[in-house]
Design a binder for these strands. Structure first.
Lengths: 202, 202, 202, 202
DNA sequence: GATGAATGAGTCTTCATTCAT
DNA sequence: GATGAATGAAGACTCATTCAT
């Protein structure tokens, strides 16, 4: 049971996953070749193939990225009990740090595949749902705590948050907006729909 | 004297542009082959090349799509004088009709290229700016007309509109939301930041 | 009978011949395309084809170059009566002026085709023969005039002249030797086999 | 343990080089296709490419041919101590055996590329220089040994030898002269400039 | 498990050539 | 006579994939 050099096939697959991620960021989905992954992983293309075909590998990477993105955000919200902190943390955690934010880029590199691949679409759908769920529960909680005054169904507002975020992410990745600008914009929206100003001290 | 097939190089190029569009919708940017365009246009691959290389052709198509999308929306706003009508028209015109909305899909198919191609990024940037400009001026006008009560800088609100719209478009294209739902969501946002309910009769 | 614009097909063909020549110098035999000739001639490729296929066109050009090269040299020899002058003129006329000497380059661009094309080989053979004939008769004359003292059959010496010249031409075209150096070398050979120093004043 | 087919990449590359040579002789530089090499080597075109692109392969072949030609000749001269033997051996070794002399043909097939490719020109230049060096040192030695009486600088005579040889090679390759004729001619030149008759017994 | 050589399918691209106008 | 659009054949080249070692 003693793991030898990282622990066999499982570990190797994980290493490969990381390689796929790096390669995907460098080359994009369009133009990603087996060789890119192989070079990133320091093995031969044939060796990469040994662990599964390109599509599966990429799909897995996407899946992982979604999982990580969602979890990180969920944890970011869980870290606090006050809904205002939760919302602040939630927003701050979701917005990409800049055009090189690996996780976010991964998500958007892959996105167009959703238009043609049902499995990819399903993953993307789940991603969105999880984001909405986070925002939604924060809003409900904030209302219960008496911090937020809300006029629309929480789920609608939450969806708006996520959509706006999504739209802005693309601009951050394209280098047209900074993370700070986007956060400001999201705070403005938050104030408009909750009546609470996140930028103020509590 | 009537030209047999629309007449002249210009026309042929336009036909080809349409073929590129159709092919792009069918095959996506990734996986678009010369042959796909050729088949759509009813000619041989070599004939396609006769009018420019693949990249140029696709770029042109994107450029055209952006232009058309922007113009249609600008005209949609111009059609009215009351800012409330303008805003309603503007929102209605921007949201895709469904997963098969050709123009919108084109825009999003091409988007990932912005991450690696500066020229594409420039086009996309211009697209966003034009949308923001439309929303922005509608908001300013609405304020002047006394219909809207606005708490944030118009440009910020406009950017929010555009970002939210962008995020929702992806969901419409993915088939996860209907046009109607998105419009409802945008109306909700509009009410929150302008104080005016677009869904009510004026 | 009045020639219109240069005089019809014949003239057009001649113009085309000049274009082939220029194109050949720019692109080389390997890599010469119909389009190159067309551009040089200011017409479309199809128009070039109208006057004969590529091979024929090039062959003709080669033939013409050979003819011109030979004639010029023969005339150069004919211009004098004294064999010493003839020899000097002959040598001076044959050596390329430099890497850009059009006529000479043409001859050597085309040469490799002789290895595979019998018609080309025949032309090249004739070229060599004519050069040998010129040198040969000059040598014979010089002997008769008492200027040259010759130990070998004139035809052998003449062939040597031509071979040496040929070898040196390639070096001039390659830019490795100047015309002056080559002439010096040929004069040295001339002195060695005729006993007469062409570099001295008569 | 004996390797099945010569063993290792080096060997395979050498086999490929030989295939390039054969293909080059059959098809010429102009008209040499990847497929020709592949067929000569008994593999697929893609396999040829695996070892480098066409240009590199051909260039290498040329380089090798030059090296072999030069070395053989240098060794031919080294085999003797008497300058008269050296000169005889040198001449005999350089002249092609006939139109099918592979090594010589290779050299002349490739030559025209020198007009446009600086790297090729450099190789060709080196080739000429090495030939001149061989002849030059033989002449100097012969003078020192008292066998040759020389009127011109050895380097000039050597260059003349090489140029004449070059010119004659083309005629041998074109099938217009036999090796024997050319040797006779070169002997005649040798006698004229050294005073020694190579055709006589020592 | 992994490699390197090799393959074969598929793509772009070039180019002479054709043909209606 | 000449053009421009279009073709089709042929080429290089890329790349996932295979397979013996």
């Amino acid at each position: 049971m003693a793991a030898k050099k990282g622990g066999g096939k499982e570990a190797r697959r994980a290493e490969l996953g990381a390689a796929v991620q790096r390669a995907l960021l460098v080359r994009g989905l369009e133009g990603l070749r087996l060789r890119d992954i192989a070079e990133e992983a320091g093995v031969t293309p044939a060796a990469v193939l040994y662990y599964g075909d390109l599509d599966a590998l990429v799909h897995e990477t996407y899946q992982l990225a979604i999982e990580r993105y969602s979890q990180e955000r969920e944890q970011a919200a869980d870290r606090f009990t006050d809904a205002r902190d939760k919302l602040r943390s939630c927003i701050g955690n979701g917005v990409a740090s800049g055009p090189d934010d690996a996780l976010t880029r991964l998500l958007y590199e892959y996105w167009p595949r959703c238009l043609r691949d049902a499995r990819a679409a399903a993953l993307d759908s789940a991603l969105t749902e999880r984001q909405i769920a986070v925002y939604s529960s924060v809003l409900v909680l904030g209302q219960a705590q008496g911090h937020f005054v809300i006029q629309d169904p929480p789920r609608l507002l939450a969806a708006n948050f996520v959509a706006m975020e999504d739209g802005y992410q693309m601009e951050v990745l394209a280098g047209r907006r900074t993370r700070a600008e986007v956060i400001t914009a999201l705070y403005a929206y938050a104030r408009a729909v909750t009546g609470h100003d996140l930028a103020g001290q509590h």
